[in-house]
Nucleic acid binder design. Structure first.
Length: 440
RNA sequence: GGUCCCAUCGUCUAGUGGUUAGGACGCGGCCCUCUCAAGGCUGCAACACGAGUUCAAAUCUCGUUGGGAUCACCA
């Protein structure tokens, strides 16, 4: 039994977004669950659009999300390998040159569709004469190359889609090398998957048709065909949410206070029959992974829903998960947590308890009274109730009229955690001064 | 248009011939309560359409409609 290995292969042509993240997540989770390895592969064959900046940002996002990788490769460093295989397959006639221009291909495609025919490449290039080629070269045209699909039924068992099959005759020979000699996605990807021993490929279902062609490619280069899992694509309110159009960046989400694990919990469960609920460790999420629970239709991704889920996530976040990021005690965290929107909000409450607050005075008669009967420390758990009972009795106020002015004086805010929990944290000195209207 | 896939509450889904069509999120109400949260209880709400098979169809078959993917010198 060979070792399980998956890969995440972004092209550094943009920032990490929700679509990317979902693919990376499922791969990472699968590796984790099966005890396999997760590899990062930079698919930078497109010189024109690949940028170091994007690559760095991608790494940073991956780390933030918690997807550690144990191995890394970059396609631009492997051209010699691709070239060797290319030459071999050209010699075999499996890869062949074509001289059509993009415009010509476009026209052919349109014409075929208009006639109700399949818009697949007509393989005219297979019938070029010496004269044709001489003529193209004389015109200064450079060839691009296609991979020749062998006729027959191509089939595989997909982890999420079950048995899949395509008739090669109905597919177009994929272009794998551009006119300028640079490689397109398919060919290098298959070579790498084969060379690096990738056992499982988890990706969006926009790749299903590609899979048929790639299976023949794996065979042509003498590689082992991996197991595939094609995830239904996410859709948004405005239709599809492809990885290209995916506009919701991970960095933006992070800046807004959305937790990495909230994103992961949400994406891992969206479209499954499991409830979307907080997971506070990726390991635990991985154990719950089950492709059989994935639906086959395309779930809607709603940013608002994610944000909503995130606040729920934060409000029940265990101290263990935040103790390295926040500067408060476990008790403080647990008391204030249900009132937070984002983790950073904890600072607000820490400041209210420990730094200066300018009180808002609503009923000085009441707050003066409250200050005068505020018992000296040490306090115990009953102090607050005892104190408030005295204020209540002597003022004749109760309910909101009683609590609200005290809350405003103590915290300057309309709402927040229970005053009972806040008071001991504020302490006698600050509490007394604030009740008297002084900044403290 | 060829090929492939999909269709159950607003959303994500369970369901594999006989169910009061279940759950989760959201939404409404109630309780708790000084507030906002949190928590507890409760309610509303769905089988795209049309034929067929069958004693019986959300479930099987065919068709229709509606979505999506792909057919790129993007990945």
């Amino acid at each position: 039994m060979s070792e399980i290995k998956v890969r995440f292969a972004p092209s550094p042509t943009g920032f990490m977004h929700i679509g990317n993240t979902r693919t990376a997540l499922f791969n990472w989770l699968l590796a984790k669950k099966l005890g396999g390895k997760f590899m990062l592969r930079i698919d930078d064959t497109d010189f024109a659009r690949s940028k170091k900046e994007y690559e760095d940002a991608m790494r940073e996002s991956l780390k933030w999300l918690g997807f550690e990788w144990s191995e890394e490769a970059r396609q631009s460093a492997r051209f010699a390998r691709y070239d060797a295989l290319r030459d071999k397959l050209i010699a075999q006639g499996r890869i062949y040159p074509c001289y059509d221009t993009p415009e010509e291909l476009q026209i052919k495609r349109k014409r075929a569709m208009a006639k109700g025919m399949a818009p697949i490449y007509d393989r005219q290039a297979l019938h070029y004469t010496q004269e044709d080629i001489a003529k193209f070269e004389a015109e200064g045209r450079k060839p691009h190359y296609r991979f020749k699909l062998n006729p027959g039924i191509i089939e595989w068992e997909d982890i999420v889609r079950g048995h899949c099959q395509y008739d090669a005759e109905k597919l177009s020979d994929p272009i794998i090398i551009r006119e300028d000699g640079s490689y397109l996605y398919h060919f290098p990807s298959c070579i790498d998957d084969s060379d690096f021993g990738i056992t499982h490929i988890v990706r969006g279902e926009d790749h299903v048709t590609n899979t048929a062609a790639q299976i023949q490619m794996f065979e042509a280069i003498g590689g082992k065909v991996p197991t595939f899992a094609h995830l239904p694509l996410l859709t948004g309110v405005e239709g599809k949410l492809s990885k290209r159009l995916g506009s919701l960046g991970v960095r933006e989400l992070r800046a807004e206070g959305v937790e990495a694990l909230a994103i992961c919990s949400f994406l891992a469960k969206l479209g499954t029959s499991d409830a979307i609920e907080p997971y506070y460790s990726l390991d635990e999420l991985a154990q719950s992974l089950d492709f059989a629970k994935l639906g086959r239709s395309q779930p809607k991704f709603d940013e608002e829903e994610l944000k909503h889920f995130n606040t729920k996530f934060v409000r029940s976040m265990p101290y263990e998960a935040v103790k390295n990021r926040v500067n408060v005690s476990e008790e403080f965290w647990n008391e204030v947590r249900p009132n937070l929107n984002v983790v950073d909000d904890i600072k607000l409450w820490a400041d209210i308890c420990h730094k200066e607050v300018t009180p808002v005075m609503e009923d000085t008669t009441l707050t003066d009274l409250a200050a005068s009967v505020l018992p000296p420390e040490p306090w115990n758990e009953n102090t607050f109730n005892e104190w408030l009972n005295i204020v209540k009795r002597q003022s004749g106020k109760k309910g909101k009229e009683l609590f609200h002015p005290i809350r405003k004086a103590l915290t300057a805010l309309d709402n927040g955690p229970e005053l009972k929990t806040l008071l001991p944290l504020i302490g006698y000195e600050k509490a007394y001064k604030r009740l008297k209207g002084e900044t403290a």
